[in-house]
C-alpha cells in the first residue's frame, strides 16, 4: 500500500484537480448550497430576495401527509429498484456472458431500452398501461383475466407499482451491462457451471463468483440506490407530476417549487432527500473505501 501513490509534490494532485473541482464547485456544489439555503426562507425568496423563515418549512414537512407518502413511495422504489434489477441483471449477464454465437446480439438488443430517453419510454408505457386499449390489459383480457385489467396509472393503488415496473424494466439492462463488464475477469466455464450445475452451484456462486464481482456490485448498487432515491423522470413523464398518489420526494419537490411556486418548501424537501441518500451512500461508500484501503 505505501508505495501505491505518487507523491512527488504536495501540489501535484491539486494541479490535476484544479479545473474539475473549480467547474464542479461553481456549477454543482454552489447551486446545491444556494438551494439548500432557501430551505430556511419563505416561498418567494429565490425571486425577490431572502426572507428568513427559520425551520417553518421543516416543521410543515413533519405534519404533511403528502411528504410522508412520498417517503414511503421512495422506499418502495429503493427496495424494488435495487432488489430486482441487481440480482436479475446479474442473472441475465451470466446467461449472456458465454461466448456462444449470437450472444453479443442478445446483449446488444437487451441493452436498447437504456439508450432511449424517458420521454420516449414514458410515452410507450403510457400506451401499454392504457386501461381501455393498452397492450397490458388487452393481453390480460385475452387470457380471461379481465378482473386484473385495471387502471394502472389512474388508480392510486397501482400507480406506484406500475411506475416502478417501468423503472425496473429500464434498469435491468443497465445492471446487466455493469455485470457483463465485471464478468470479463471471471472464467466463462465457472459462470456456466454455476448457472446450471447441480448441487454445489450456490456454494460456488457465493464463494467464487460473487467475490470476483464485488467491484461491479459496488457500482451497480451505488447507482441503483442513487437513482431510486432521486427517481423523477418516470414519475414526471408518466403522471405529469399530477398523480399525487405516486409522488416521490423528487417529484414532490418539483411540484412544490414549480407548480405551487413555493421554492422554500421545495428546497426543504430537497434537503431531506439529500440527507436520506447521503446516509445510504455514506454507510455504503464508507464500507467500500475501508475495504479498498485494506487491500
Amino acid at each position: 500500500m505505501p508505495a501505491r501513490r505518487l507523491k512527488k509534490s504536495a501540489l501535484a494532485p491539486w494541479a490535476f484537480l484544479a479545473l474539475p473541482l473549480a467547474m464542479y464547485v461553481v456549477w454543482v456544489i454552489v447551486p446545491i448550497f444556494e438551494s439548500f439555503a432557501f430551505a430556511f426562507t419563505k416561498r418567494d425568496s429565490i425571486i425577490y430576495g431572502p426572507v428568513f423563515h427559520g425551520l417553518a418549512n421543516f416543521r410543515r414537512l413533519a405534519g404533511d401527509g403528502q411528504f410522508w407518502l412520498a417517503i414511503k413511495n421512495n422506499l418502495l422504489w429503493l427496495v424494488f429498484f435495487v432488489g430486482i434489477p441487481v440480482p436479475l441483471g446479474l442473472l441475465v449477464a451470466m446467461l449472456f456472458n458465454g461466448g456462444r454465437p449470437g450472444s453479443r446480439l442478445y446483449k446488444t438488443l437487451f441493452y436498447l431500452p437504456m439508450t432511449l430517453s424517458f420521454t420516449i419510454i414514458g410515452t410507450i408505457w403510457m400506451w401499454i398501461y392504457n386501461p381501455d386499449f393498452g397492450a397490458l390489459n388487452t393481453f390480460l383480457r385475452s387470457i380471461g383475466l379481465d378482473a386484473l385489467a385495471v387502471q394502472w396509472l389512474g388508480d392510486k393503488r397501482y400507480m406506484t407499482g406500475a411506475l416502478i415496473a417501468v423503472g425496473v424494466w429500464r434498469q435491468v439492462p443497465y445492471v446487466m451491462i455493469l455485470y457483463l463488464a465485471g464478468l470479463q475477469g471471471v472464467p466463462t466455464e465457472l459462470v456456466e457451471a454455476s448457472l446450471i450445475d447441480g448441487a454445489s452451484w450456490w456454494q460456488r456462486f457465493r464463494k467464487v463468483i460473487l467475490p470476483l464481482l464485488l467491484p461491479a456490485t459496488i457500482v451497480a448498487v451505488t447507482i441503483s440506490v442513487i437513482d431510486s432515491l432521486r427517481s423523477f423522470d418516470i414519475v414526471y413523464v408518466m403522471t405529469n407530476t399530477k398523480a399525487r398518489a405516486a409522488e416521490v420526494l423528487a417529484s414532490y419537490m418539483y411540484s412544490s417549487a414549480f407548480q405551487y411556486a413555493d421554492f422554500g418548501y421545495g428546497s426543504a424537501i430537497a434537503v431531506i432527500q439529500f440527507l436520506i441518500t447521503l446516509v445510504f451512500i455514506l454507510v455504503y461508500v464508507g464500507d467500500v473505501l475501508k475495504k479498498e484501503s485494506e487491500r
Partner: peptide, 17 residues
Amino acid sequence: VLFVAGMLVPFQMLMIP
C-alpha cells in the same frame, strides 16, 4: 465524497440557481 455527494441531490432543485 464531494464528487459523489453532488450526484445525490435531486438535481431539479438546481434549475433556478
